[in-house]
């Protein structure tokens, strides 16, 4: 019997309209339901495009893509996405709880109030990410590390079955980074995680698997991963 998978990508290709070259071509990989997979690669290599394809925000120009057993556009409500830069406008008067409750939003959300059940899930997600004390704080007052944990809480509030994170440790100090990684380790006990990172040591120490994304995708040996071992990939020798 085949292993259950959270993500199955087979011969995937993507090209932006009007461009001459594929951003991604012949990409194949799977992510298991207990995996914590790091996506490494140079800037412009297609990591963020890959995440957007997995979220159903872009449609592949070739190949097959399955997330949580279905087409990404139909399953993305079950995917918790944490962007590199929170798109949340600090000028909007909103509390942390307001931000987390966005995870409970759906196409059926009408009227001014979220239900008691939605509030309960949001509070529980804040508890899990140890940000419950921030619930009533203004979003604009949070530090970078706090924001990342709150965004993870938002993803959890949506009762996600898969976490996609785009460089969540960028711009936060080492102490907060460790806290965040401990949180992700805990979450990985029940959720598969796919995480873009530029931090080789972080990927090497914490993740089960690593994928190199530079137009194509190659599996990396996680043990002993360092910048020297990535040199051939950086220069395209491994393609």
């Amino acid at each position: 019997m085949a292993e259950p998978v959270a993500i199955r990508v087979d011969g995937l290709a993507f090209r932006y309209p009007g461009r001459a070259e594929d951003v991604l071509r012949n990409v194949s990989f799977t992510v298991g339901t207990t995996d914590w997979v790091g996506l490494l690669g140079p800037n412009g290599g297609g990591k963020t495009t890959l995440l957007r394809l997995l979220l159903g925000q872009l449609a592949p120009t070739g190949g097959r893509l399955e997330v949580l057993g279905g087409a990404p556009a139909t399953t993305r409500r079950r995917v918790g996405y944490v962007p590199q830069h929170a798109g949340i406008d600090s000028g909007v008067p909103a509390s942390v709880l307001d931000v987390v409750l966005l995870g409970r939003l759906s196409a059926a959300s009408w009227g001014p109030r979220f239900s008691a059940g939605d509030h309960e899930l949001a509070r529980s997600a804040l508890d899990e990410t140890r940000t419950a004390d921030l619930a009533d704080r203004a979003w604009s007052t949070l530090s970078g590390g706090q924001r990342q944990r709150v965004l993870i809480a938002r993803a959890l509030a949506s009762q996600a079955d898969l976490l996609l994170l785009d460089e969540p440790t960028t711009g936060i100090d080492i102490h907060r980074e460790k806290e965040l990684l401990r949180l992700l380790e805990r979450l990985n006990e029940r959720l598969p995680i796919l995480m873009v990172s530029h931090d080789i040591a972080l990927v090497s120490h914490h993740m089960d698997r690593a994928l190199w994304v530079d137009r194509q995708v190659s599996e990396l040996e996680v043990g002993g991963l360092d910048s020297d071992s990535l040199e051939p990939f950086f220069h395209g020798e491994s393609r």
Partner: peptide
């Protein structure tokens, strides 16, 4: 505005997240 309150708030805060959550 009462009917659309949560949707408008979502658009103000994070349109990308709103779209991912199924809000047109």
């Amino acid at each position: 505005a009462t009917l659309f309150y949560r949707r408008f708030l979502a658009l103000c805060l994070d349109p990308e997240q709103a779209e991912l959550r199924g809000v047109p």
